[in-house]
Design a protein around this nucleic acid. Structure first.
Length: 552
RNA sequence: GGCCAGUUGGUGAAGUGGCUUAACACACUGCCCUUUCACGGCAGCAUUCACGAGUUCGAAUCUCGUACUGGUCACCA
């Protein structure tokens, strides 16, 4: 066995024990959680990554633990230029930062590195070599075709699929023959020689899914690929053992490999970490069935999608927490001013089946979030958004900074603030009429019932009496006067009792002015809008509206 | 096909044998408040927890079976 091990890994002279000494257990209080986020460096962060990294960070943080970033680049094909930098940048945007691990394409912090798997080759090989020496691993010379053929045979026989038992061609292959093949440069992989018994059961307690029962693993899985790098299963064991990860938080597509992972830990006499498997976010697809959000088909799976819509990062995180922990929403409702750091995350409150991604709910959370910001904060948010996506608006916001903040302050900073902005991306459409530069090519939504002579009368009498210094009550009683003089009821209740006695009500008067100024019958507080516009601009708006009516 | 898991209104869910005539939130509908809209308030929206059988005085909650949905069965992670 030693001869074979030395032939396969001639340059490995350290032992597992050496590495165990190099990476001693962390000196942490009992119950402290060490977690990690371990993506492939594809540079693409999707909502699922955000979800699992957030949860991992949160549970570590709740115990003053460690959260580190490990890069899983054992599949060279998937590696993308600047992938690591992009991942770090995107996560940082969402306030997801690390205590340890990679901090750029090449640099890292922490004592348990390297934190990038391609630099850990010797470590994996050391563990594999030890297995080889003990007869718990062996080289397998099967070609891809051979493996496929076996699968076909198994399908035909309705046998369980996989490399195990009598289908494991090289499991009991003669050592000298193997040595000959290797010396002959035949390609091979290293497989784990499983001692598991498929008829026995193992029980695993998942922090989220609860008690899980599986048959023992008896698959002789590949641990070292022909390029010398480990497979996920093997790297997971080696890394999380040596880095002393206490909790593996990952997506639940890994559940079915759990027996393999547990077996690997047991083989080295190591206590496995705790596992917490997260269900993926789902959506209803074209055919009406539920499926995982896919980064190919679903634009909303990309984190950049929310960025482009101008949904505040904080709102996205709030949504994620809402989905992740079912009691969060109620907690947040009663602790509106608390930081989400004060919320204690609970694995038991994580749904064990996949949730549908609910965009309406996200928007609602976003809307509530924005409603609680100060006008200045809204301004900063829109400004940052516009800088990237709407230069025209950006320039206006910069030019009219104080004025813009006043606009955003209409019916804000009060007990029950307005809630009409659901994202930074939809603000411009709602306030465009406050900017003369945006007020061209407009169409007015005057009430059809009121003819243009009436409209003119109202506007004319209004401009005569308008005084910018009036307070709201004075202003409104003047409005009522105009109405009374023209035959519109100034009291809405009276009007409703006898609508036939009047041409209309004060609501019609308001709306004529509102439409003339904003083009729309829906707007925030009219008094505030008029005040911000000022008398001269109001006059201009009136003229413009009248002109448009004439030309009709 | 094997293995594993899940299934409570349009959506996310609460719920662990009686306090459930099934919370709460989103969406939707109606009413109220109101100079418009938004906000806010009130009401409506699952006679029933995929289906069937069983255990029990009693089941959304326990057991079994069926159906459906999802995951997995790579030298990808």
């Amino acid at each position: 066995m030693n001869e074979l091990a030395d032939l396969i890994f001639p340059n490995i002279d350290k032992t597992v024990a050496d590495y165990e000494k190099m990476y001693p257990a962390r000196e942490l209080k009992e119950g402290t959680i060490v977690t990690r986020f371990a993506p492939s460096p594809t540079g693409f962060i999707h909502i699922g990554h955000l979800f699992s990294s957030f949860v991992a960070k949160k549970v570590a943080q709740d115990t003053d633990g460690i959260f580190y970033l490990r890069i899983e680049d054992t599949d060279q094909k998937r590696t993308v230029e600047n992938g690591i930098t992009n991942i770090i940048r995107d996560l940082k945007n969402y306030n997801i930062t690390f205590n340890e691990g990679m901090i750029s394409e090449t640099e890292e912090i922490g004592n348990y590195g390297p934190y990038i798997q391609s630099k850990r080759k010797e470590i994996y090989q050391t563990f594999a070599k030890e297995l080889l020496k003990k007869g718990l691993a062996y080289p397998c010379f099967c070609t891809e075709e051979e493996v496929n053929d076996v699968r076909e045979i198994q399908k035909r026989r309705k046998d369980r699929i996989g490399y195990y038992g009598e289908y494991a061609k090289y499991r009991n292959f003669d050592e000298q023959e193997a040595i000959k093949k290797i010396k002959n440069n035949e390609p091979y992989v290293v497989r784990f020689k499983s001692m598991g018994d498929y008829n026995k059961k193992i029980e695993i307690n998942d922090a989220i899914k609860g008690k899980l029962t599986f048959p023992e693993n008896d698959l002789d899985i590949v641990i070292i690929k022909s390029d010398g790098l480990p497979t996920y299963h093997f790297a997971h064991f080696v890394d999380d053992y040596l880095m002393h990860t206490t909790h593996i938080i990952r997506s639940d597509e890994w559940i079915s490999s759990l027996p393999i992972h547990i077996q690997l830990f047991k083989t080295f006499n190591v206590k496995p970490p705790k596992y917490a498997h997260l269900s993926p976010l789902m959506k209803i697809d074209e055919t009406g069935s539920k499926r995982k959000l896919s980064k190919r088909k679903d634009p909303e799976s990309a984190v950049s999608y929310y960025h482009e819509k101008g949904i505040p990062k904080e709102a996205v995180i709030l949504y994620i927490l809402t989905v992740a922990n079912s009691n969060f929403e109620a907690w947040y409702d009663t602790n509106k001013d608390a930081s989400i750091d004060d919320f204690k995350f609970d694995f038991k409150k994580v749904s064990s089946s996949g949730s549908l991604f609910d965009y309406d709910k996200l928007l609602n959370i976003s809307k509530n979030y924005i409603s609680r910001l100060t006008a200045k904060e809204v301004y900063d948010g829109v400004l940052e958004y516009a800088k990237e996506f709407d230069l025209e608006f950006y320039n206006l916001l910069t030019k009219y900074k104080d004025y813009s903040i006043k606009i955003f302050n209409i019916e804000r900073e009060q007990k029950k603030p307005r809630k009409d902005y659901d994202s930074y991306g939809n603000i411009k459409d709602q306030v465009f009429y406050m900017y003369d530069e945006l007020f061209s090519d407009v169409t007015y939504d005057f009430d059809e019932k009121i003819n243009k002579e009436e409209i003119k009368k109202v506007l004319d009498s209004y401009i005569e009496i308008y005084d910018e210094n009036d307070d709201k009550d004075t202003w409104f009683s003047k409005m009522q006067n105009i109405g009374d003089n023209l035959g519109y009821c100034s009291n809405i209740k009276q009007y409703k009792e006898n609508p036939d006695n009047y041409k209309g009500s004060i609501a019609d008067i308001s709306n004529i002015i509102r439409v003339a100024v904003t083009t729309s019958r829906m707007s925030p507080d009219l008094y505030e809008i008029l005040k911000l516009l000022g008398k001269d601009r109001i006059k201009d708006r009136f003229n413009k509206a009248i002109q448009k009516l004439e030309n009709k």
